[in-house]
């Protein structure tokens, strides 16, 4: 039960955080691109629950859920959304580029496929030092059409790099449906053709995600080489705040909403888990978000005189 509650709490944190972000976007306190993860929370919550602190994570531009589930403090994530100095990237990254060295969170990468080579290199360093670490590398099914996907899967399988490739198949590469982008439909089959273990998972079922991540990370840590999970999921909201959603119909969205991973887990743990307990959990999350917003609002912006800091390191060679 505790495990279930932890997963539920994580998914709720992400869901409610992003709902608040959407409101803050409407009131112009958050700007730039804002890609919401709503609907896909089971993937981040399930996979991250199987990682150790010394493992590493590479993320995408849809990274709020990954960062929060990895343990990046919500205050720092929210401050980043506000572009503040206290943000996890000092306001230089924004929504798409959350980073946290302490949590070995190597960033939201907004070039589709661009994080995969980096994940391979992080894993190579672990191998060369003999450390039994896993690198979890998140990307969408759109990345499976990029050259870097193919280059890196081949390289990782060839060198048996300890990478857990997490392909979040939310059915749309921005607005292009899967079937319009991929001639062959089975991503796990495609990945396994490179010589690594790969299988598909119901990404709307957090327990299934967790179980698959457990199996995969065990195999990777034991020296079994990389694995790929195709996590079949769906984003309930638009691609970004600018998206009029002309490419999908409402009935399809409604169908997927019936599979809401939060509702499904709540249903599963009833009747032991009561409405009161759910309410208490919601309140707890709400307090955390309120705190994150309040501290982000009052935090300082980095002075403009610091504009050119961090282009190069602040020590001489």
């Amino acid at each position: 039960m505790k495990e279930h509650l932890d997963l539920l709490r994580e998914m709720l944190r992400i869901r409610r955080f992003e709902e608040r972000c959407a409101e803050l976007y409407s009131s112009a306190q958050i700007r730039g691109f804002l890609h919401l993860y709503v609907g896909e929370e089971a993937v981040a919550a399930g996979v991250m629950s199987e990682l150790d602190p010394q493992d590493a994570v590479v993320s995408t531009y849809r990274d709020h859920g990954h960062a929060l589930a990895r343990g990046v403090p919500m205050d720092a994530v929210m401050a980043e959304m506000f572009g503040k100095e206290t943000g996890c990237s000092r306001g230089r990254g924004g929504s798409m580029h959350l980073f946290d060295a302490t949590h070995r969170f190597f960033g939201g990468n907004a070039i589709v496929g661009g994080g995969l080579p980096v994940a391979a290199g992080l894993a190579l360093a672990h191998v060369m030092r003999g450390e039994p670490r896993v690198v979890a590398c998140f990307f969408g099914e759109g990345a499976a059409a990029e050259g870097e996907f193919h280059e890196v899967l081949n390289l990782a399988a060839l060198w048996r790099l300890p990478v857990l490739f997490c392909c979040e198949n939310n059915q749309y590469a921005m607005g292009t449906a899967f079937a319009k982008e991929h001639a062959a439909g089975d991503l796990a089959l495609r990945a396994s053709s490179y010589g690594l273990a790969a299988w598909s998972v119901d990404g709307m079922d957090v327990l299934a995600v967790k179980e698959s991540a457990r199996r995969a990370t065990e195999s990777i840590r034991a020296g079994g080489g990389p694995c790929l999970l195709e996590l079949r999921t769906y984003r309930f909201r638009a691609h970004s705040m600018y998206d009029p959603e002309r490419y999908r119909d409402k009935a399809e969205v409604a169908q997927w909403r019936d599979l809401d991973p939060i509702d499904r887990l709540v249903e599963l743990i009833r009747p032991e888990f009561t409405d009161d307990e759910l309410g208490a959990l919601e309140s707890e999350v709400s307090v955390e978000i309120d705190h994150a917003v309040a501290t982000a609002e009052t935090a300082d912006f980095e002075p403009v005189t610091d504009l050119t800091r961090f282009v190069t390191s602040e020590v001489s060679p």
Binding site: R92, A101, V311
Partner: peptide, 8 residues
Amino acid sequence: LHMSGGQF
């Protein structure tokens, strides 16, 4: 390095 606020 820059995008991570000096962390990486």
